[in-house]
Design a protein around this nucleic acid. Structure first.
Lengths: 333, 333
DNA sequence: GCTTGCCATTACATCGATGTAATGTGAGTC
DNA sequence: GACTCACATTACATCGATGTAATGGCAAGC
């Protein structure tokens, strides 16, 4: 059986509350007493029971991070950063996946693991598509990414501007027939809509007519679906001069298809992605992409979250992060 | 303020314990009473406080998953599977990263988040290198992967056999000068040692003399370190006929280097990996690798863990998973 | 020497859910 | 109608840590 404050107190010859005082350091404890207590804690290998502490204090020191799919490199990198930053600040992170069951997003937001969790960082997929009942007692929530709803604090990158800049960058390499992969199909996520909008804005700016046949829909943003979508597309369409994939994962799928068909990148077609995942650097050829600081995403999200925990009533805040178009071998050699 | 059993009880006109009985379903509750309680719970949007329940029951319903680095595709895929399988069984998963600080492995094992966590699935990096003080009160632990220590239940793939089979497969394509990337440098992880051993076993079986100059050390198993290690190697050595990388991540880094140098894969050199991460399929060229069922890793680990929770004293068990050499374009076209 | 005041320490209650043991209620039997 | 028996329900204590209010001791001050 694990030692409790009582055991430590008995061994140190003090009261349980004194042990607690030593741990918390708010109430002063005299030198010799503190020493005796610390020795007793060490001797018994005392570890505070966080359930009890959580019950008493009303906070558990755990936050939840909800992502569509942890196996996605982008999600994984975000999760890595969140876990790392959170750990530095003394938080533990519980991971929830929402990908397989969209209802879980609402579930998580409205119930929030019932006090086992002090706050929630949510990278939504569905949430942006329908209204959420803004219950009275939502837990502190920070949303990551493009969300049309204005229901919580948010950290994001300006997808419209970033997609526009990437399209312009592709145009600067002399290509005009620029296709996009990942356009909204049926429902379409907010990010898909926004990135398409940025693409169109760039075309307008360039004086290029929008050509609907250059918009390749791809509902799910994974390499396999992207590969399939592009493959199907190429069977019945001429090769575009450039391909802007709405995520790096899709771009990696696309590169694979192009290579298998003997289409040279960037010789025959330029390819770009979005997100700057680590593998993009080692893609063949290395991938031009929209980059932003994922550690900053994590630290800003955590900052908003802790501030929200301190002040539940404050105004909603949005943090927009810088981004940069990083040109690598997939668009110019 | 969130509703408690007391509130529900008051509204339903029963005692708190009856509400508890309705929730748990062990003690029988009469039909009408149960209905009244359920309505009251719905009306108040009651959610049980898991801290309190955890304190009382001594279990929290949360397990921890400790990985070196969540951003690694392999770790991410494992995490994805564990979270998914755990969720199906009603567990929540807390993620811990051990990469930056090896001491955390011991810390986690010996302290185990102080009752906020019912068990631990640990993918160790350092643990296999030194003895662990087998404390009296370790929490239920399951280790993932190659570990020399016999200190806990374990799920693994036979690295020696798998590396041997991969080496044999490479030899079957007619290559004799087979190099390995990821060999143990200074300390060297257990997996590195075992995979090297499998490689040597294959050479012996093939009647090929072991050539130390074909062993390329690479301490950290990431694309960037692999790329650097291979690059340096190629500057001062002739090109091998095949390159067996001890992880897919390293292989992806290697492919990138080879492509940049204009070395054709598999024309000039065959490349293989280990782990079968999703991106390997979309590598250019697609990557030959050692594959195993990661979902099964997760489900077996969770099975061992829950069984261990039920019976702390039972004998230590090891589950060895099947693997398969999957040949793709990087070794033959 | 006795009080005043301060500060370390203590006893007790509390957070919310639930096991235990006791109570209450009803039907069923003679 | 009194009694047993079974079963639903209740009061109370408990898990471990900690805030609150009260207690204790010690030194300074007259």
């Amino acid at each position: 059986m694990r030692a409790t404050v009582k055991d430590v107190a008995r061994l140190a010859g003090v009261s349980p509350k004194t042990v607690s005082n030593v741990m918390n350091g708010i109430v002063p404890v005299s030198g010799p007493t503190r020493l005796r207590v610390e020795q007793a804690m060490a001797e018994l290998d005392y570890v505070p029971n966080l359930s009890a502490r959580g019950l008493r204090n009303g906070r558990s020191g755990v936050i939840a991070l909800a992502l569509p799919d942890l196996a996605t490199p982008f999600s994984a990198e975000i999760a890595h950063c969140v876990v790392e930053v959170a750990h530095e600040q003394g938080w533990s992170v519980q991971i929830e996946e929402t990908g397989s069951d969209p209802g879980r997003e609402y579930d998580l937001m409205s119930r929030a693991r019932s006090n086992l969790i002090d706050g929630l960082i949510l990278n939504p997929v569905v949430l942006d598509e329908s209204a959420v009942k803004v219950g009275v007692s939502l837990p502190p929530v920070v949303l990551l990414g493009e969300v049309s709803q204005k229901l919580a604090d948010r950290v994001w990158v300006d997808s419209v501007a970033a997609a526009r800049d990437m399209t312009l960058a592709l145009a600067r390499t002399g290509r005009r027939r620029i296709a996009v992969l990942g356009a909204p199909g049926g429902r379409g996520s907010a990010a898909a809509v926004l990135r398409t909008r940025g693409y169109q804005a760039a075309l307008e700016q360039l004086g290029i007519d929008f050509d609907a046949s250059l918009v390749i829909p791809c509902e799910k943003w994974s390499p396999d679906t992207a590969a399939k979508a592009l493959s199907t597309y190429l069977d019945s369409h001429p090769l575009p001069e450039a391909l802007f994939c709405f995520t790096d994962s899709m771009a990696i799928g696309a590169l694979s298809v192009l290579w298998k068909r003997g289409i040279a990148v960037p010789g025959d077609i330029a390819v770009a992605g979005f997100d700057d995942i680590a593998d993009g650097q080692y893609a063949v050829p290395s991938l031009t992409t929209v980059s932003f600081d994922k550690r900053k995403v994590a630290s800003e999200a955590l900052r908003l979250l802790t501030e929200r925990m301190a002040d539940r009533g404050g105004p909603q805040r949005v943090v927009a992060l810088d981004y940069a178009v990083v040109e690598r071998d997939s668009t110019s050699s």
